[in-house]
Amino acid sequence: MTTSPTARSRGSRPGTGLPVGRIGLWAFILLTVLFFLAPLYVMIVTSLKTMDEVRLSSIFALPMHPTFEAWRFAWSEACTGIECHGLQSGFWNSVRITVPSVAVSVLLGAISGYALSYWKPRGGEILFALLMVGAFIPYQLFIYPLAFAFAKTGLANTLLAVVMVHVFFGLPIVTLIFRNYYAGLPHELVKAAQIDGAGFWRIFRSIILPLSRPILVVAVILQTTGVWNDFLFGLIFGGTNNQPMTVQLNALVSAQFGEKPYNVHMAATILTALIPLAIYLASGRWFVRGIAAGAVKG
């Protein structure tokens, strides 16, 4: 007897065996991973070598005597321009820039998203459209007018100037993601709270904010990495006293004479990337969940 028609039409169960397509897929994934991980690997092993070893060994070789000397040097002794105190001051500058920039832009974005979504203020739609246009105009266009304005108001080369610029450019996208997230929450919640007697701020604080955790995580991650990785604003508006880590890294890597201390460069680069990297690793799952929540509900 041959197999019955029904059994045959079902075909083989998908996923059993290793069809060619699947092998190809895995090979592709593996290659992609290697492509992205190889540089990281080289950076890490190089940063753990002494310069003697860097000179002699292959860039893929593991360090024979792993040492954090290059890391220490990059952190506290390497020259970043005229000064030679390593990247540490830049790290703290970046912290001082990032924390208020993120806090203020996320909070303001949440409030404006909430206001736009639930209270539909007069002219709100126009304001929002302007914000969006602002978000998509290349920000380089704004640099000269901003620098001019800061110079006029005496804010040039201050921490406040850098923070203000970050808030200004972060606000549109943060407002957008909050507005979309809130659009997906039932509006009747706000109506019920209004009837209960709560006002604009009370509803935001007691009802809306506690429901915003997933999207807050997304916004904070987005803004933190964006602000931390910024180079241009810090360079232009921060002055010499408020240079973020990225600017110092650039100075460190480009301003050396003679032989390039690759181990120190690698260590400095990893140090600079550490914060965004840590955030991604720690919150990747939250991030995806928040994005998904926004996508599904928005």
Partner: peptide
Amino acid sequence: GMVFQSYALYPQMTVAQNMGFGLKV
């Protein structure tokens, strides 16, 4: 007082807190 189709209960509050919110405000 109003009752909505979607109930519109405050998700992060307990039943007692939901009922008491208006009075607390």
